[in-house]
């Protein structure tokens, strides 16, 4: 087995401060060796956080700024730093115990000075008295820390419960609002379908369906959003979401959001179906739900244990 690549070379690779031969050596290793790739990713995170904390010297800062000057590397650096900050905030994350990722560096030398003074303290009696005082202080601190830990655990539990309740309440409100919207749309359709008593009944208007096929996009910018132009008299939109992967999910949940991220509609337990060589998921949504503008459809797949995982996103623009 080849010897591990040392961290210094990996950091030089990240900031582009190595020869072509060294680059090739690093790349050959991380393509075939799990540990090297993992270490490289870890060093990149460290580099971003050290940069954010001002721990790099002038040369290192210059190298980072040159290497990360252009997108998408610059975006990754910024996201990594921002993620570190957000995860270190007391309100973010499932519990406060998440280690603060960006910390103030510890002050060096303080403890060593105390130890040196202690070693030089005379006479021995004074040293013993001080030792007893220190022991009492340590015991007191330990008890306080224990209490603080218990309080933190209680607080974390309460925060978690509160977040869970809030999510349930938001979910219920959203479902209620969606139901109301659906009922209103149905009522309108029924009213249109039922002529007033006594009138000659004209032929019932046939519901108009508009069908569109959407391809997934990894990001909004990766591909121009699909343009769809449903007829103005369309009652219902049928969207066929093509899957660019072999579906291992038993069913899907779809969420339709505006470009501002507001949830307009969602449906769960949508089954995939075979479409030629690939698979797709079909949705039927009231046409009145979408006006002219940009939309995102997020498709999540059900894993074992009912866990949901992001499977694909579809971006489209409606222009009537």
């Amino acid at each position: 087995m080849a010897s591990p690549v040392d961290d210094r070379l990996l950091v030089q690779y990240l900031v582009g401060d190595c020869s072509e031969d060294e680059r090739t050596r690093v790349e050959e290793r991380f393509f075939t060796d799990e540990e090297t790739f993992e270490r490289l990713c870890e060093l990149e995170e460290d580099l971003a956080w050290r940069y954010a904390r001002g721990e790099l010297n002038v040369t290192e800062r210059g190298q980072v700024e040159r290497a990360y000057a252009a997108r998408p590397r610059r975006d990754r650096l910024i996201l990594t730093i921002a993620l570190g900050r957000v995860l270190a905030e007391p309100t973010q994350g499932p519990e406060r115990a998440l280690a603060p990722v960006i910390e103030t560096p510890a002050l060096g030398g303080g403890w060593w000075l105390v130890v040196r003074r202690w070693l030089s303290l005379e006479p021995t009696g004074a040293r013993l008295v001080l030792a007893a005082a220190c022991a009492a202080l340590v015991i007191g601190l330990a008890m306080q820390m224990q209490q603080a830990r218990q309080l933190r655990a209680t607080l974390a539990q309460s925060t978690e419960d509160s977040a869970s309740l809030r999510q349930q309440a938001e979910g219920a409100a959203r479902r209620a609002s969606e139901s109301e919207r659906r009922i209103a749309a149905l009522t309108e359709q029924i009213a249109r379908a039922q002529p007033a008593t006594g009138e000659l009944s004209p032929p019932a208007p046939r519901p108009v369906f508009a069908t569109f096929v959407l391809m997934p996009g990894r990001t909004r910018s990766a591909r121009e959003p699909a343009q769809i132009a449903p007829p103005r008299n369309a009652d219902t939109l049928r969207l066929q979401l093509n899957l660019d992967f072999d579906s291992a999910y038993a069913s899907f949940k779809a969420e339709l959001r505006t470009s501002a991220g507001d949830l307009l509609w969602s449906q769960d337990r949508l089954p995939p179906r075979k479409t030629g060589d690939s698979a797709s998921v079909s949705l039927t949504i009231p046409a009145a739900l979408v006006t002219d503008g940009e939309y995102e459809l997020l498709l999540q797949g059900h894993l074992r244990g009912d866990t949901l995982e992001d499977a694909a996103s579809y971006y489209f623009t409606v222009a009537r």
């Binding site: 460290d46 570190g84 995860l87 994350g93 499932p94 998440l98 990722v101 977040a163 869970s164």
Partner: peptide, 16 residues
């Protein structure tokens, strides 16, 4: 979702 929040927080949690 909360499980994904936990995953990302735990993934980035540890020190170098």
């Amino acid at each position: 979702p909360s499980d994904q929040q936990t995953l990302i927080a735990e993934y980035y949690r540890h020190d170098s």
